[in-house]
Design a protein around this nucleic acid. Structure first.
Lengths: 242, 242
DNA sequence: TGAGATTTGTCCGTATGTATT
DNA sequence: TAATACATACGGACAAATCTC
């Protein structure tokens, strides 16, 4: 791991364990560079990561203020897998593997993704059961051209773990969309909906680091079990007239 | 504006107008640094902004690949105001100013924000009307200690415009939460709900650049009018055991 | 009010390492 | 193997904002 990432993790843990308390200033960049025995530029890269993660706010002429990160739960954004979330939030849940077979990608999704129709995919459907009720339905399509084999045992555990640890592929980025849709017949059959008329649907296309598309995911949440938290920084409004 | 921001905007517009096409490589960092007559570090800062905005993907040893940004609508994330969104997406809508008066902040919200109870705020309620139906209800509380005056005419237009342009304050960051809640009596009275039982609620606390909290916002959307798009990069899973 | 010290923002040039082709 | 391209790191310089005395 690079030096600035190590320093980021070190300062992060010092914020989380309150060595640096909310509202206080971090040591100045010059002090930190002496303390860690690196150049100021290296410190600044570490601080940039802290800034983007919502841990600090920087102010020219003043310093880096530690924000109050404790009051919020762990952020859910940033391409984190369900398995990781489960561990982070100490949720006790059970995964039901409902389907895992090779099919051709439905035309509708192929055209949405802008790839050739009848591409071959692993179609995986899993239910997430909390307190005896199925509250989330995950539907995944993984291109067989990228992922050759997908054993049931791995699908039952964590797709991301299998892809990154077992296959050695690196996930790069995703585009996600959140909308609310009427519940389908399949939703009512596979989930515990208590008569809800709608579900929250998140759709995402996931790419590897080299930009190849390899996965399309649809995650369907019961209304009362959905929550999304975001940290956002203000950017100057874009000029759309150009 | 700083040089790397100018270069970011320039390359951004070249991607949007397809001078640099999706799937192609940008000129190398060395070439760009000669082209713009700046050091490579300055180019790298501009490319970092492009990376974070989802315009490019960088690959060591290869180059910077232009991503296909056209297929998605404009991203809605990143603290953009309704007024700006409206312009960006060419939506024709009307704003109804339903309330704008000075009150004490409700205890419930004060404790959520972790600030003294009975703080004085401007309480603003606005409806967003599209095609004759009120589909969004915005409830804003702005601390009078930061915002002294709030004329009706400004509340009718854009709060952010008034705060940034008129008052010269700089908005820094916000924490946002998205959940689905049962519609309240007020929702049914003020919005056109067609019998919907739920609404999407986004709650956010907005801070100035110097970290002072100044606004709490609750935006209530009719289910079929809510859509949120995010660009996410993979980060290594955090180690929560430390 | 003002001058000086401190701190972050920006930019430059150089060097070395790593990945790709 | 060699050339190319990005990743990381160092140190220096000056500007701009803030704080203190």
């Amino acid at each position: 791991m690079s030096r600035f990432q190590e320093i980021f993790l070190d300062i992060e843990s010092n914020i989380l364990n309150q060595t640096y308390k909310a509202g206080e200033l971090l040591p100045s960049e010059n002090k930190l560079s002496k303390q860690y025995n690196v150049s100021r530029e290296t410190i600044r890269k570490a601080l940039t990561l802290l800034l983007e993660s919502g841990y600090i706010q920087k102010k020219q002429g003043k310093g880096s203020i530690v924000l109050d990160v404790k009051r919020f739960d762990f952020p859910i954004s940033g391409l984190t897998s369900y398995k990781e979330l489960e561990e982070a939030q100490h949720i006790n849940s059970e995964t039901l593997l409902i389907k895992n077979q090779v099919e051709t990608l439905p035309d509708q999704i192929a055209s949405f993704l802008n790839i050739p129709p009848s591409s071959e995919v692993h179609a995986v459907i899993r239910g997430r059961k909390v307190d005896g009720e199925t509250v989330i339905l995950d539907k995944d399509y993984l291109l067989t051209s990228v992922i050759q084999e997908l054993p049931d045992a791995e699908a039952q555990k964590s797709l991301y773990n299998y892809i990154e640890k077992e296959l050695g592929l690196t996930i790069g980025y995703a585009r996600k969309e959140f909308i609310v849709e009427p519940a389908t017949k399949e939703d009512r059959e596979l989930m515990t909906l208590h008569g809800d008329t709608h579900v929250v649907v998140t759709r995402s296309e996931v790419h590897l680091e080299d930009t190849t598309l390899f996965q399309y995911t649809e995650s369907r949440h019961r209304l009362d079990k959905f929550r999304f938290v975001e940290f956002a920084r203000r950017r100057p409004p874009m000029d759309y007239n150009k």
